[in-house]
Computed example of a mutant assay.
Amino acid sequence: MKDARLLHTMIRVKDLDKSLDFYTRLLGMNQLRKQDFPTGDFTLAFVGYGDEKNSTVIELTHNWGQEEDYDLGNGFGHLAIGVPDIYGTCEVLEKEGVPIPRSPGPMKHGGSVIAFIEDPDGYKIELIERKNG
């Protein structure tokens, strides 16, 4: 599998508009494409920081008519995003009402400065401060 690469991670979302706003406006990703599948009663929207040809992206799957919240399960961990200024990023997100279950700070055993936020469906996203990309 020499030339294989990770294409996307898929998560199910209850309110697609709210999720698209979160990932594009608040996290700065681009909406790359969006397609309705009427015969399957679902919509797929792909978001990311780069194009799908060269970057790993997130597939947001919205199943039409989903009334209840999804069970996030106990096997899913989190998505991770590198940011240049974790404290400033968290300050902006907090003002927007984004839950921050772990405030920015160094990891317990030294090393990286991290924080955890939650998207509109409760998925955990780890922010890792990366000054140089």
Rank of each mutant, 00 (worst) to 15 (best):
Asp3Met: 04
Ala4Asn: 10
Ala4Phe: 13
Leu7Tyr: 15
Leu7Pro: 12
Thr9Gln: 15
Arg12Ile: 04
Lys14Phe: 08
Asp15Ile: 10
Leu16Ser: 08
Lys18Tyr: 12
Ser19Arg: 05
Tyr23Asn: 12
Arg25Gln: 11
Arg25Ala: 12
Leu27Ser: 07
Met29Ser: 14
Asn30Ser: 14
Lys34Gly: 01
Thr39Tyr: 03
Gly40Leu: 06
Asp41Ile: 00
Phe42Ser: 00
Thr43Leu: 01
Leu44Val: 07
Ala45His: 04
Val47Met: 11
Asp51Gly: 15
Asp51Met: 15
Glu52His: 13
Asn54His: 14
Thr56Pro: 15
Leu60Gly: 04
Trp64Val: 02
Gly65Asp: 00
Glu68Tyr: 02
Glu68Asp: 07
Asp69Val: 01
Tyr70Met: 04
Tyr70Cys: 01
Leu72Cys: 08
Asn74Thr: 12
Gly77Leu: 15
Gly77Asp: 15
Gly77Arg: 15
Leu79Met: 15
Leu79Tyr: 13
Ala80Leu: 13
Gly82Met: 11
Val83Ser: 05
Pro84Gln: 09
Thr89Gly: 07
Thr89Gln: 11
Glu91Gly: 04
Leu93Asn: 02
Gly97Thr: 10
Ile100Asn: 04
Ile100Gln: 04
Ile100Tyr: 03
Pro104Cys: 03
Gly105Gln: 01
Pro106Asp: 05
Pro106Glu: 07
Met107Ala: 03
His109Trp: 03
Gly110Gln: 01
Gly111Lys: 00
Asp119Gly: 04
Gly122Phe: 12
Tyr123Met: 12
Ile125Arg: 05
Glu126Leu: 11
Leu127His: 06
Glu129Phe: 06
Glu129Gly: 04
Asn132Val: 06
